[in-house]
């Protein structure tokens, strides 16, 4: 494409940037090389996720059961709907970006401004959605009990629907002060204690005949194994060590801790890319308003950030597939 920046000082200087190998300007080619290297970084993360998943192929959490929440719709199970919405927002902002690039080719300052603005809005909606998704994931929903082996025991009713701890466990009033720095070892702190103790969960399970324990193990239909009533009580009494609510880097109520680790790491790294993309877009947006590219008679800068922005969208397409669908 013949949209070189009109910069007279490099004209004719083969080694000073005046040369265009592959008919792409210096800036665009470097952006492509950066994208290739960044794509390899993301592939590394996703392949590492695949490694851990293959390692625990029969124990991995089912993403459909983890990401079922949609803002403002409490208590409804709507798997994938919100993630699909996020995907659509990002694709849509990619479209406005490419329209901005197209308007730039026609040197239409007004249109470039509008489309850049819409792209930034789309990016902000996406980052906000991801923050909400994180908050929901960290807070958790049903609660679970962790065993000595580090496995997670969840609770279901007779129909196989998940039951939250708060629905059958009665928390008794107990005196148990959190360990603080002021008493005992000053360098040892204790995090927030879970709402219930394992003993309370055991008595709650004994009191409710219809509640069963579900383990992490997947059966041949790809569903989690539900234990019999006797097995449920035995497993919980013998192996339960503590109650887990929500998720963090060490443990999570959805299953393997690695699932949460990769969720935080991969979507976090991608979210960071979106965030920096929004910042770069804002800078270019102001440059457009100030008329920097109008004076240059060239909007190639918009095209270059556009490449980055599309790349972020491209990565999300893969994250969506490998984290939420497969």
């Amino acid at each position: 494409m013949s949209n070189t920046v009109v910069a007279t000082e490099i004209e004719g200087k083969a080694w000073g940037g005046g040369n265009e190998p592959l008919k792409a300007s210096y800036g665009k080619m470097m952006m492509w090389f950066f994208i290739v290297s960044d794509a390899l970084t993301f592939s590394g993360f996703l392949a590492a996720y695949g490694f851990s998943r293959f390692k625990f192929i029969d124990y991995w959490p089912i993403a459909d059961e983890v990401f079922t929440h949609v803002p403002f719709l409490h208590g409804q199970e709507l798997p994938m709907i919100y993630v699909a919405f996020m995907t659509f927002v990002l694709i849509m902002s990619s479209v406005t970006m490419v329209l901005a690039v197209d308007a730039g080719h026609h040197l239409n300052k007004g249109k470039v401004t509008i489309y850049m603005f819409l792209t930034i809005i789309g990016g902000l909606i996406f980052v906000g959605s991801q923050a909400w998704e994180w908050a929901t994931f960290i807070k958790g929903d049903f609660g679970a009990v962790q065993t000595k082996g580090g496995n997670i025991l969840q609770f279901v009713d007779a129909d196989g629907h998940r039951v939250a701890l708060r629905d059958f466990v009665v928390g008794e009033h107990t005196e148990r002060t959190e360990h603080g720095r002021e008493n005992g070892l000053w360098f040892v702190e204790e995090g927030t204690l879970p709402t219930y103790t394992v003993e309370e969960v055991v008595s709650g399970l004994e009191a409710h005949e219809n509640i069963l324990v579900r383990t992490q193990l997947l059966n041949e239909h790809g569903e989690k194994t539900v234990l019999s009533r006797a097995e449920s009580l035995k497993q919980l009494k013998n192996n339960g060590t503590h109650v887990v609510e929500g998720a963090n880097l060490k443990e999570n109520e959805y299953g393997s801790p690695l699932f949460a680790d990769f969720f935080f790491f991969i979507t976090g790294f991608h979210g960071f890319h979106v965030f920096s993309g929004v910042i770069i877009n804002i800078i270019i947006f102001f440059n457009v308003i100030l008329g920097t590219y109008e004076k240059r008679k060239n909007y190639e800068m918009v095209e270059k950030v556009g490449l980055y922005w599309h790349f972020v969208d491209l990565v999300w397409v893969f994250v969506f597939t490998f984290f939420y669908l497969v």
Partner: peptide
């Protein structure tokens, strides 16, 4: 996304293959 949004379709063959 790569071919139409990132305009890979309009780049020269060598750049396309390289990336």
């Amino acid at each position: 996304i790569t071919w139409d949004f990132m305009h890979m379709r309009d780049e020269v063959k060598a750049l396309r293959r390289m990336v």
